[in-house]
């Protein structure tokens, strides 16, 4: 159907009766985490309509890589709740299984200009998975809506 090598999507949304799952991919763990940030923003609003106006420096810690992914997404939700900040692009500056440093570029949510997507309460540990498949990274995380 699709000649040549199919372009891999950075993330897709999985149906779940009450909530929403995210399947995220990346060539490296860093890219996986960057794409996870973008996937979360895409649930909350139309990501492409966000301007690159504000930069947030973020540091997160967790006991392991899977928990770190949840902590990372929940920190982004925190920034949204507190400052209405939504990231369009994410750059992981440092990553090890127990901590990360990142930079998010985006802007303050403005209901006049931005699409109101689906509200997310939290990223959960339910069926949480981060794994390396034939050299590529893949993660599944379920969001509580």
């Amino acid at each position: 159907m699709n000649p040549g090598r199919p372009r891999r999507k950075k993330y897709r949304q999985l149906s779940h009766t009450a909530d929403l799952g995210l399947r995220i991919r990346g060539a490296t763990p860093e890219e996986l985490f960057e794409n996870a940030g973008a996937a979360l923003t895409a649930v909350l609003t139309d990501r492409r309509r966000l301007r690159r106006q504000k930069v947030e420096e973020i540091e997160v810690e967790a006991p392991d890589l899977e928990a770190l992914l949840v902590a990372w997404l929940n920190r982004l939700l925190y920034l949204y709740d507190v400052d209405a900040f939504l990231g369009r692009e994410f750059q992981i500056l440092e990553l090890n299984p127990q901590s990360l440093k990142a930079r998010a570029t985006g802007e303050t949510y403005d209901p006049e200009r931005h699409l109101a997507g689906t509200a997310v309460k939290a990223a959960t540990y339910h069926h949480l998975e981060v794994k390396n498949r034939n050299g590529r990274w893949e993660a599944t995380v379920i969001l509580d809506l």
Binding site: P63, A67, A71, K121, A122, Y125, H126, H127, D144
Partner: peptide
């Protein structure tokens, strides 16, 4: 409330290990 839940899930992940509670699901 969402943050309290998230904060304490982190506490409980450690606590479950500490008290030897076997979990079929981390959540």
């Amino acid at each position: 409330g969402h943050q309290v839940c998230d904060d304490y899930i982190k506490v409980m992940l450690k606590a479950a290990a500490k008290y030897g509670i076997e979990l079929p699901d981390r959540q």
